[in-house]
Design a protein around this nucleic acid. Structure first.
Length: 424
RNA sequence: GGAGAGAUGGCAGAGCGGUUGAAUGCACCGGUCUUGAAAACCGGCAAGGGUUAAUAGCCCUUCCUGGGUUCGAAUCCCAGUCUCUCCGCCA
């Protein structure tokens, strides 16, 4: 959520920045709504003040044994007007809040303008794109031939966009997860965390999935309003909701390995083959919360942590800065890590690292106490995948494949695979 | 699932329908004392919002959440959430 004070004071500037990402802010409508809010709020609070003053007077008069009837008469006339004003104010503030909750974050100045992923800016590439002396297969052909990937079984058990893994590939999936967890906890300073895979609506409002993106989520039946998590970002970041951290707890760095559940509404026909786009996939998620002035450094650092996974796995990748049109709702700046997939002959997203500034923190009142002032200040939140496990498995299969259809095991994974060097 | 108890400031813990945003203790911050520290003593110390140039004043809201009663609710009523204890069931 954007700072309401920023909107009041710099509306045109905010509108200009929002326009960069294709969000049209009706400044006249906002101004009109805001003017009404101001009037109504001032009037309501005046009435409340009057009522409070008289009521206290009644208490005193009664204690002194005086006649309270004149005071009762005076306050009686207030009643209806106050009630009406309070109700109107509540409605109006609800409208303003809805508007604010539906407004995306402002893109950082360093974010390139653009319409879609074609306008993203490549920052750097790493690794050699492998040259094969045979026609490389994609992960589906490789996995099915190895007997480790079974999409037909998954379709029978559940439906499309699910996977069943067997044997060495299932183990490779687990090995990748363990490798990532160990790397980030021992070398990058994240605290391993176990979280619920279902969250309530307040948590989803906090990170920005609600109210606008309900159709992307799986909602469970029942009164509670629980949803399956689309990413561990939701439970991890919401650990800080309604909290005030002491300064010595910063930077706050946590990580979790969880399954992620996405309805993929609106993705019909997209990436229908294989494991690229599933309703359920595993991910190791990195989350940081830091002081405002540290957040862009933290974004670089966290992106580097995700890159380290790819480097240690020796998978070629590139880093792109998402353009304004491709930027996620809550993010001010996002780097995508795209891994090279020989089966598709292109780079595909495998991690997304974002700085949300105080956008999420304001929604969830996540603060830290500045010892210099003694006052709470909003945190800045940063997160990124480190990495999406399923897509990493795809990348390993396709980049490490051999002519005979076997797959070499990356060096760093061998300890997690009981020393196995080759999957055949 | 059944029965009972509870939810108050960073923590512990008082609180009669009326000058209670809330006693007291601990923690924390500042000061006095001290070579320094501790102790002792003095003072300060919730959050969110509005107004405003203001991080100054003033005002509003908040004692789990949402309704209600009342001139006035932390205190009374209703519904819900969560925690604890006992019983049942269970990985």
């Amino acid at each position: 959520m954007l700072d309401p004070k920023l909107l009041r004071g710099n509306l045109d500037e905010v509108a200009t920045k929002l326009a960069r990402r294709g969000y049209e802010l009706d400044t006249n409508a906002f101004n009109e709504l805001e003017a009404r809010r101001k009037d109504l709020q001032i009037r309501t609070q005046e009435l409340q003040n009057k009522r409070n003053t008289i009521s206290k007077g009644i208490g005193k008069a009664k204690a002194a044994g005086e006649d309270i009837q004149p005071l009762l008469d005076e306050v009686a006339s207030l009643g209806d007007e106050l009630k009406a004003a309070e109700e109107q104010l509540k409605t109006l503030q609800g409208e303003l809040r809805e508007l604010l909750l539906g407004m995306p974050n402002l893109p950082d100045d360093s974010v390139p303008d653009g319409k879609d992923e074609a306008d993203n800016r490549e920052e750097r590439t790493w690794g050699e794109i492998p040259a094969f002396d045979f026609e490389p297969k994609d992960h589906v052909d490789l996995g099915e031939a190895l007997g480790g990937l079974d999409f037909a079984a998954a379709a029978k058990l559940t439906g499309s966009r699910f996977a069943v893994m067997h044997g060495s590939l299932a183990r490779l999936h687990r090995a990748l997860t363990q490798f990532m967890l160990d790397l980030h906890t021992t070398e990058h300073g994240y605290s391993e965390t176990y979280v619920p895979y279902m969250v309530n609506e307040a948590s989803l409002y906090g990170t920005g999935q609600l109210p606008k993106f309900a159709e992307d989520l799986f909602r469970l039946e029942g009164e509670q309003g629980w949803h399956l998590i689309p990413t561990a970002e939701v439970p991890l970041t919401n650990l800080l909701r309604d909290e005030i951290l002491e300064a010595d707890r910063l930077p706050f760095k946590v990580l979790a390995h969880t399954p992620c559940f996405r309805s993929e509404a609106g993705a019909y026909g997209k990436d229908t083959r294989g494991m690229i786009r599933q309703h359920q996939f595993d991910k190791v998620e990195l989350v940081q919360a830091v002081r405002a002035e540290d957040s862009f450094d933290a974004l670089e650092e966290l992106t580097g942590h995700a890159e380290t996974v790819l480097r240690k796995l020796e998978l070629p990748y590139r880093v792109v800065t998402l353009c304004t049109g491709d930027l996620g709702f809550s993010s001010a700046k996002t780097y995508d890590l795209e891994v090279w997939l020989p089966g598709q002959n292109k780079y595909r997203e495998i991690s997304s690292c974002s700085n949300f500034l105080d956008f999420q923190a304001r929604r969830m009142q996540a603060r830290w106490r500045n010892p210099d002032t003694g006052k709470p200040e909003l945190l800045h939140t940063i997160n990124g995948s480190g990495l999406a496990v399923g897509r990493t498995l795809v990348a390993v299969l396709e980049n490490y494949q051999q002519k005979d259809g076997s797959v070499r095991v990356p060096e760093v994974l061998r300890p997690y695979m009981g020393g196995m060097e080759l999957i055949r």
